[in-house]
Amino acid sequence: MAKGSSMDICRIGLHNPNMTTARTKIPSYRLFGEHQDDPADFWLHCEPIPERTHLHNWEIALHRHEQFFQLFLLPQGSGEIVSQDGILAFTAPVILYIPPDAGHGFRFTRDIDGLVVTALADRLRSLTAADREIARFAEKLRIVAVAGEDGTRSAEAIERIDAELSGRSIGRSLLLEPLMTEALVALTRASRPGNGQQEQDRDLARIEALLTIVDTHFRERHPVGFYADRLGVSAAHLNRITRNASGLSIQNLIDRRTLETARRDLIFTPTPISKIAYSLGFSDPAYFNRFFRKQTGLTPGAFRDRERRRLAD
């Protein structure tokens, strides 16, 4: 799969009960402190992502925006998008596209950085009416790698939107709409597969096989080369197609699978933390503690206590 392709088919992540939430039960958020009866007399807003996410401990609950769409430019960090269709993992540099009325939430790592642009949906409708490919792109949530000419061009347009909104230059309002058009057109182009269908299918099959092998062997803490050898490709090539499809490296996939099992065991079993560490292939519980804290910001013990209190409540 070519650089810049979108991650519509990735099946990576944890099961989350929010996935099955009916659309009508997902809260619809208005933005920027508006009241429900305020007139929507603006159409574009941009802000740094850390300003909002750190207020919510880097997690944003499942919600939707009926009248807005969003672009997240993430040059740093990683995380997961929680949607009604599943959990999609991503690693920077990527651009996230959230269509109007789509249920979504976020789990970000603490090093997340970047910009979020929010715009009124009617500006999107004018673009989708003019071009069938953009309309197809805009129908669903997307994760697009910032790679190649088009991905870079979209990222630069988002940065210019932020610069125009932050300044007082002459005619800035005249530039905002063409900059948004450029960002969306370039993002649509960046999401298109660059290889032939046969190569795409082969890469997708390799990713599916990789996920199966990871599920079977993640407790053994094998190096990346073990998985590449099982699939008959080089580690560099397997990492490349995995990143293009999911935004994650092979090691990221292994770590996420390990973390998923660790979380489940900590919450739902009385197993001592040291035994959980050994069962996951860690030779030293202290190494497991460092691994878990790096991934979650909490020690295994603190995570277990917090989640059990939540269940009790």
Results as ranks from 00 to 15, higher is better:
K3C: 12
G4V: 04
C10L: 06
L14G: 07
H15N: 15
N16L: 00
N18L: 05
A22V: 02
K25N: 12
P27H: 06
S28A: 15
Y29V: 14
R30F: 04
F32P: 04
H35G: 11
D38M: 00
W43P: 15
W43D: 15
R52S: 13
H54D: 13
E59P: 00
I60H: 05
A61D: 13
A61F: 10
R64V: 10
Q70A: 11
D85N: 12
F90V: 08
F90C: 09
A92T: 05
I98E: 11
P100Q: 01
P100G: 02
D101F: 13
D101S: 13
A102D: 14
G105F: 03
F108Y: 03
F108R: 08
D111Q: 13
L115W: 12
L124S: 09
E133I: 01
I134E: 01
A138M: 05
A138Q: 13
E139D: 07
L141P: 09
I143K: 07
D150A: 11
G151P: 06
G151R: 00
A155I: 10
A157M: 09
R160N: 10
I161C: 12
D162A: 14
S169E: 14
G171D: 11
R172Y: 13
L174P: 02
L179S: 02
L179E: 09
A183G: 07
A186R: 14
A190C: 05
P193M: 04
G194N: 05
G196Y: 06
D201A: 12
R202P: 05
L204T: 05
L204N: 10
R206E: 09
E208P: 01
E208L: 06
T212C: 09
F218P: 00
R221W: 03
H222M: 01
A245D: 06
G247H: 08
Q251N: 13
T258P: 10
R264D: 15
L266G: 09
I267A: 08
F268W: 12
T271K: 14
P272Y: 06
I276H: 05
A277W: 09
S283V: 15
D284T: 06
F288P: 01
R293V: 03
K294N: 07
K294S: 14
Q295D: 09
T296N: 02
G297M: 10
L298K: 09
T299K: 03
T299P: 02
R304G: 07
E307P: 10
R308T: 06
R309W: 07
L311G: 11
